[in-house]
Amino acid sequence: MARLSLHFPENQYCYTTLLTVRVTDINAANHLGNDSMISMISEARARFLFEFGIGETEDNGTGIIVTDLATTYKAEAHARDQLQFEVGVMDFNKYGGDITFRITRPYDHSLIAMAKSGFVFYDYKQASVVAMPESFRTKFPLVNWLA
């Protein structure tokens, strides 16, 4: 069976934040659980968008909706570990693109996980996908475009 492999260009990361693994994030195997990692990825995404002045939902009813999430785990993380989330964007298309994540433990430089979250812009009032706003695209001028 083929395994998922995630590799991203170094130059696409444009934001970094630290999150601490809480005791409540630990599973029965005594390490960071998958469900908690997904929550931490969501928090890193929210911080990234906020930093760039992007609302997850705007007053006009248009927002970003996650379409998929792929994660590969490389090492365990434990309670009270500080994790560094490097966040970037890539592979823009007419409607959205990918938000990428490299998650490391800074004190020993261990790679904990890689993740990619697909997104599109969505009009919640009309319940339909809409084109990426120019105001979003121009915040990331170096992003490559998919056909």
Rank of each mutant, 00 (worst) to 15 (best):
N34R: 11
S135W: 00
S117G: 10
V129D: 04
F101P: 06
H78G: 05
E58I: 04
H31R: 11
K74P: 01
R137Y: 00
A131V: 12
A29T: 15
D123S: 05
R47E: 06
F50T: 15
V23D: 07
I103D: 03
I64C: 01
V129A: 02
F119K: 11
L19W: 02
V21L: 05
S5N: 13
P141K: 12
E58Y: 10
V120G: 00
D25P: 08
P9D: 15
I41A: 07
E134A: 12
A29P: 03
A115I: 10
V87D: 04
V120N: 03
V21A: 00
I65F: 02
F140N: 11
H31Y: 07
A77Y: 06
N27G: 10
R22Y: 01
I65R: 08
S42M: 05
S117T: 15
M114A: 04
P9L: 02
V130H: 08
E134D: 15
L111Q: 11
V87F: 06
S128I: 11
Y13V: 13
Y73G: 07
V120S: 00
T100C: 03
W145N: 12
D98Q: 14
V129H: 08
Y124D: 05
E86P: 07
V143F: 04
L19E: 01
I38E: 00
E10R: 15
E86L: 06
E86S: 15
A131H: 13
I99F: 05
E43H: 01
W145Y: 12
F8Q: 14
N93R: 14
E56K: 11
S42C: 01
F48A: 07
I65Y: 02
F52R: 10
L111F: 04
R22I: 03
N34E: 08
D108K: 13
L146G: 09
Q84A: 09
V23W: 02
R105D: 05
Y73R: 09
R137I: 09
A46V: 07
G88N: 10
T20A: 01
E76N: 09
D81W: 08
K94E: 13
F121G: 04
V21N: 05
A46W: 03
M1R: 15
V66T: 15
A29L: 12
F48P: 06
T100G: 09
K116Q: 13
M90L: 10
A77G: 02
R137T: 12
V89C: 02
F85P: 06
F136C: 10
G88F: 01
Y122K: 09
Q126E: 09
M40V: 03
H7A: 09
Q12L: 09
F50H: 12
V120I: 11
I64E: 08
F85G: 01
V87T: 13
R45E: 06
F92Y: 10
G118K: 09
P106W: 03
E76F: 00
R45G: 01
